[in-house]
Amino acid sequence: MSIASLSRQKAPPPGKAEAAPRDRGRSRVTLWIWGFLTPTIVLYGLYTVYPVVASYWYSLVEWNGFEGEKKFVGLRNYQEVFADPLFWNSFKITMLFMLVVVPLKVFLTLFAAIMLNSPKMPMRTLFRTALFLPVVTTTAIVGVVMQFIFDPSSGPVNELLRKFGLSEGVNFLGGSSTSLWTVCLVYIWKWFGITLIYWLAALQTVPDDVLEAARIDGCGPRQLLRHITLPLLKPFLIIITLLSLESALKVFDLMQTMTGGGPYYSSEVVEIYIYRWAFAATVPQLGFASAAAVIFGLFVCVVGALQLLGVRAAQKARGAQ
């Protein structure tokens, strides 16, 4: 059941409860329906829908601290956000992070999945477990542990480098030229397993009889991969890339615990920028932070819209085969 087809469907669902034809029965069912929807409407309304709407209003006010008064200032916050070079810096870093991490992760996991999908591979369940392990662990805690692993003086990475005489100790997270790339590396390590599972699920959909037929026709394993498996995976490539893009936008936990956006803002993604102005500043600038959040939210929406279009395209591609 896909999200797109769920929203598109017009006919009422088959399990429609018409068993109580009397008016009293029907109104009672309606009452139950809304009763069942109440928890979602209240919780989701208060904590997701309202915040999305309220952000627009907050972005138009000057508001210093949650207890403070809101003063309407029009579009001034937006002007200030757009004029702030550090906002553009954080936007650029978010984009850079996304563009480095997503292709690397998607293609490395595809490669690993093809290897692990072959029944000839020994111990593949064990490998899958090991590669998936970081996914279930708490990002913030992994981030803290990584601070120690990459420590310039006694962390194991630098000890290893010193042992082989490769360097005198690299300050991976403390240097503005290395911090972002170190987080990229850890991010790929952390979420490798989830994309791997997506690919393995995709590979399962390649029908065995098609492969068998091609094999009987004299296809070698390399040809099978090039002419049958990879073309069949194309629709999944779109979906998996988009899922990865969207999750790469949410790196707050890892970035905040590994670098805190530093040093000198060299790894400050938009979410940390918003957090810094709203919660970490001595005088919180909530209106200003909301304006940044609205701009970021619109950007995420564009990615989300791309996602829906991509899913549709993928469905069409699959339907055409």
Binding site: T48, V52, A278, A289, A293, V294, G297, V300, G304
Partner: peptide
């Protein structure tokens, strides 16, 4: 529509409410 709203985006109104 709200499927992809990230926490960083909604956090200020959530704290306020």
């Amino acid at each position: 529509i709200t499927l992809v709203a990230p926490t960083g985006y909604t956090i200020i109104p959530v704290v306020d409410i």
